[in-house]
């Protein structure tokens, strides 16, 4: 029975390998921390440089962006527009997305689920430039049909964004709705309520935290989306007129924080202009950190634990 004993020498090497791999896994895991640190440091460090040329107040509340000719770095209109299109997109897609999630989780027969769920999955996988192309070649001309404007507009951006964030809202809300305990639904039905009354009175309140995570996450997505928005919003540095007379600025061209970076990066010279773009990114980053923390707040409330995806 000699052969069943592992030689001492071999055991040394397997043990060494075991230890090395353990260390290696830890170092790999730490790369994520390192990456996050590097990203934060590089974006903020490069962005802060611009404040040698312009004050923080003038940067955030300045209304004019003339980086080359007049050295004016004001991003206030972009901040407003970024918020505007994000909220606009939510107004469209939150009700639609939640309704679709309820349909998938509570009403749809299996055959319908087997069509709708892959469709949502596919919608999530379509590259943002394709949404941009669709917006540019379909939604923009349609807007031109109804109004005498350029077509490239805040409205086009809102429509495209609301389609893009639908999958996020649907899949996370559906999970939240499915997580409502059956006992709750059964008790409600046992009281003689109809299906809709159960959904409205029991299921939605019980899953509201989960649905809020979906909304918070999609706010982050919409706020950070660059390419599709850039393709349909016109990217002018004029301040849109948000008064009711001009349809709340829906049809005007505008620029967001993200499109400012994408649009200007092609000709920005190293120096204040490029630094101002990094500072724009840093401001965007701060908003994203903010929406992410709201997301975790609701996630904790909804599930009580760290839950991936």
């Amino acid at each position: 029975m000699q052969k069943y004993f592992i030689k001492k020498e071999k055991r040394f090497w397997t043990n060494l390998l075991n230890n090395i791999m353990g260390q290696l896994f830890f170092f790999s895991a730490f790369i994520a921390v390192l990456s996050l640190l590097l990203i934060t440091v590089y974006v903020f460090y490069n962005g802060i440089q611009v404040f040698k040329v312009v004050s923080l107040k003038d940067f955030i509340f300045g209304a004019d962006w003339e980086p080359v000719t007049r050295k004016l770095f004001g991003i206030f209109p972009m901040i407003i527009t970024s918020f505007y299109i994000t909220i606009g997109a939510l107004i469209f897609s939150a009700p639609l997305g939640i309704a679709c999630a309820i349909f998938l989780a509570e009403i749809a027969p299996l055959s319908a689920q087997q069509i709708i769920r892959p469709a949502v999955q596919l919608l999530a996988g379509i590259p943002s430039v394709i949404f941009g192309l669709f917006g540019l070649s379909f939604i923009v001309p349609v807007i031109q049909l109804f109004a005498d404007v350029a077509g490239l507009s805040i409205l086009a951006a809102i429509i495209i964004l609301s389609i893009m964030i639908l999958p996020t809202i649907i899949s996370i809300s559906e999970d939240a709705i499915r997580a409502v305990p059956n006992e709750l639904k059964e008790s409600s039905i046992a009281l003689g309520t109809t299906k809709w009354q159960t959904i409205y009175g029991t299921i939605l309140p019980a899953s509201s935290s989960g649905i809020m995570t979906a909304i918070a996450l999609s706010i982050g997505r919409a706020f950070g989306e660059a390419m599709a928005v850039k393709m349909v919003i016109g990217n002018t540095q004029t301040t849109p007129d948000f008064s009711a007379n001009s349809l709340f600025g829906l049809l005007s061209l505008a620029r967001t924080l993200t499109t400012n970076i994408i649009g200007d990066i092609e000709y920005a010279e190293p120096g204040p202009h490029l630094q101002a773009l990094f500072a724009t990114g840093a401001i965007l980053f701060i908003f994203i950190i903010f929406t992410n923390s709201i997301y975790y707040l609701f996630l904790k409330k909804a599930y009580g634990i760290r839950r991936s995806q």
């Binding site: 895991a29 730490f30 994520a32 921390v33 990456s35 996050l36 640190l37 590097l38 990203i39 590089y42 974006v43 490069n46 996450l217 982050g220 997505r221 706020f223 950070g224 989306e225 660059a226 993200t258 970076i261 994408i262 773009l277 990094f278 990114g281 965007l284 980053f285 994203i288 950190i289 929406t291 992410n292 997301y295 975790y296 760290r306 991936s308």
Partner: peptide, 19 residues
């Protein structure tokens, strides 16, 4: 590490681009 991964997932691609 978990915190870093969650946050990396939430960063928009334009910020990755700037980095």
């Amino acid at each position: 590490i978990g915190f870093a991964i969650e946050n990396l997932a939430g960063i928009p691609s334009i910020i990755y681009g700037l980095f």
